[in-house]
């Protein structure tokens, strides 16, 4: 297994902060040797989840771990926001009109369900949410650089 990358962000749902978060997540993927459109795809995935946490979860911090392997990557997100089992809300079926709600939240979970291959949610004892996702890179066009 290759090394993993860990980052912790302060939660602040303003455009300039979200842009900075995207840059940091991009750096995180680069350090994990994930590049090109695969990196962009994973950035989308994490952006959806982090924005969801910041906008709806009232979190004060978010932690991100990226564990790249040859054929897949595991992403772990932790936050101190409200308990919300996002894992059970992720849609991996066909897009449907009911997910085209005004805030696009269901569309976000649909997007996550199509990029991630597995997901699991835990509420940790110290009131921390943890979401583990695995993305199978062999099904995508590009893999991680060895």
């Amino acid at each position: 297994m290759m090394g993993y990358v860990f980052m912790r962000f302060g939660a602040d749902f303003r455009p300039e902060n979200v842009d900075r978060l995207r840059e940091k997540v991009g750096e995180c993927l680069q350090r994990a040797a994930i590049q090109g459109s695969t990196a962009f795809l994973l950035l989308n995935l994490m952006d959806e989840l982090i924005c969801n946490i910041l906008e709806h979860g009232s979190a004060t911090w978010v932690e991100l771990e990226v564990h790249p392997r040859e054929k897949d990557v595991t992403i772990i997100l932790r936050d101190d926001g409200k308990a919300f089992d996002v894992g059970s809300s992720i849609h991996a079926e066909h897009a449907s009109p009911d997910m085209l709600d005004p805030d696009g939240r269901h569309m976000g979970l649909y997007m996550v369900g199509h990029i991630a291959d597995t997901w699991a949610y835990k509420r940790l004892p110290n009131d921390v949410n943890e979401l583990d996702l695995v993305v199978d890179l062999t099904k995508k066009d590009e893999g991680v650089r060895p």
Partner: peptide
């Protein structure tokens, strides 16, 4: 384009 952007394009087409 975040999911909310895709959602606007999809819903407007409908």
């Amino acid at each position: 384009i975040a999911s909310s952007g895709w959602s606007v394009l999809l819903s407007r087409r409908q």
